[in-house]
Simulated scan of single mutants.
Amino acid sequence: MYEVFIGGWSNSKSVIRKNRTKPDVAEVDTPDILSADEMRGFWIRWDDGVISVGKEGESSAFLTYADPEPFGIGYFGVCTGWGASGEWLIEAICVGGHDRYVNPSAPPPPSGVTDIGDFCWCDASGGVIPPGAVEGGKDDESLYVGRAYHEGALLPGKVKPGHAVCYVAWGGGEHGKTEYQVLCGCNPVWVPTTGNNIPHNAIPAGETEDGEPLYVGRVQHEDTVTIGKVQPSHSVCYIPYGGAEVAFPEYEIMVQQN
């Protein structure tokens, strides 16, 4: 874990501490940075293993730490110390950005429906599951809808937190990727289909190395519900399972609710 202290040690310094051990990994003198007479604002950000701390209204940080061995942040907590009071504003930033898709190969949508909305794919790694992640499968633990790059393709697959990877199917094999994206912030539904019958509101989630759109599918297999990729030109849903890429002509596909 990382700890950030602002105005500690009798309001004399601020530090960043890793794994509750000393010495502190970053420290700076900040005399009287806090005040009993006025509310003062601060921000804390982290990205790619760099933690930065700054004052409200100032873009530059007064305290930073670049971890040479960073780890994913999945949880955080905030508190004041020694009877003080404070207010907290938590901003959820989706690093992966938003994708707005229109299904180019599907039939025209019903009247009043022009596309299937915004979807947030959040960057993650090492088994981290961002807030609002979409759960789509189950084996000995919950599986989440993810995607990862492999051999020039962006492939939908299953994020398995216990293995700290996103598994994708490609070229007959199952491939575990430690860096991936997780679908967040939406409530899709799953509908049964077969072959290349892609519903108009199916959610595109990637593409092959040749540029063919891929969709998110899932199947029941070996007492699991496993997430994989639907490739329309092959008329199947491929799932990564047991080290192999397994094809199913009957499957469920993820769609946006109307």
Rank of each mutant, 00 (worst) to 15 (best):
62 F>Y: 03
34 L>P: 07
129 I>S: 04
60 S>K: 14
32 D>Y: 12
236 V>I: 09
179 E>N: 10
15 V>D: 11
161 P>M: 14
246 V>Q: 12
119 F>I: 07
19 N>D: 14
201 N>G: 01
19 N>W: 04
96 G>S: 09
177 K>P: 03
79 C>S: 10
43 W>H: 02
132 G>T: 07
183 L>R: 01
116 I>D: 01
49 G>P: 05
203 I>V: 12
11 N>L: 00
254 M>G: 05
175 H>K: 09
161 P>K: 14
82 W>K: 08
121 W>A: 05
120 C>Q: 08
193 T>C: 04
159 V>L: 12
186 C>F: 08
118 D>F: 06
44 I>H: 03
26 A>I: 07
64 T>W: 00
217 G>E: 00
57 G>C: 02
252 E>F: 00
165 V>I: 13
85 S>Y: 02
29 D>N: 15
152 G>L: 13
196 N>Q: 11
201 N>E: 06
4 V>H: 12
33 I>A: 09
13 K>P: 00
46 W>Q: 00
17 R>Q: 15
219 V>A: 09
226 T>F: 03
95 V>P: 02
230 V>Y: 09
62 F>C: 02
231 Q>R: 07
216 V>M: 05
197 N>K: 10
6 I>D: 01
36 A>M: 06
100 R>A: 14
95 V>R: 12
138 K>T: 14
258 N>V: 11
127 G>C: 12
176 G>N: 08
47 D>Y: 10
135 E>H: 01
240 P>G: 03
7 G>R: 04
112 G>V: 04
213 P>Q: 11
177 K>V: 09
131 P>F: 07
154 L>Q: 07
221 H>D: 05
111 S>L: 09
220 Q>G: 08
45 R>I: 07
159 V>Q: 09
12 S>Q: 15
97 G>M: 06
203 I>M: 05
87 E>R: 03
133 A>P: 03
28 V>T: 10
27 E>N: 06
62 F>N: 01
64 T>Y: 04
3 E>G: 14
139 D>H: 13
158 K>N: 13
54 G>L: 11
134 V>Y: 00
45 R>C: 09
77 G>N: 01
79 C>V: 02
86 G>F: 06
154 L>F: 04
89 L>F: 14
52 S>E: 05
190 W>R: 10
67 D>Q: 08
6 I>L: 10
110 P>G: 04
76 F>E: 15
28 V>D: 06
172 G>Y: 10
216 V>L: 08
258 N>G: 11
248 F>D: 02
224 T>H: 11
247 A>F: 07
249 P>Y: 12
128 V>W: 01
204 P>Y: 11
21 T>L: 01
186 C>Y: 08
112 G>D: 12
181 Q>R: 01
44 I>F: 04
101 Y>R: 05
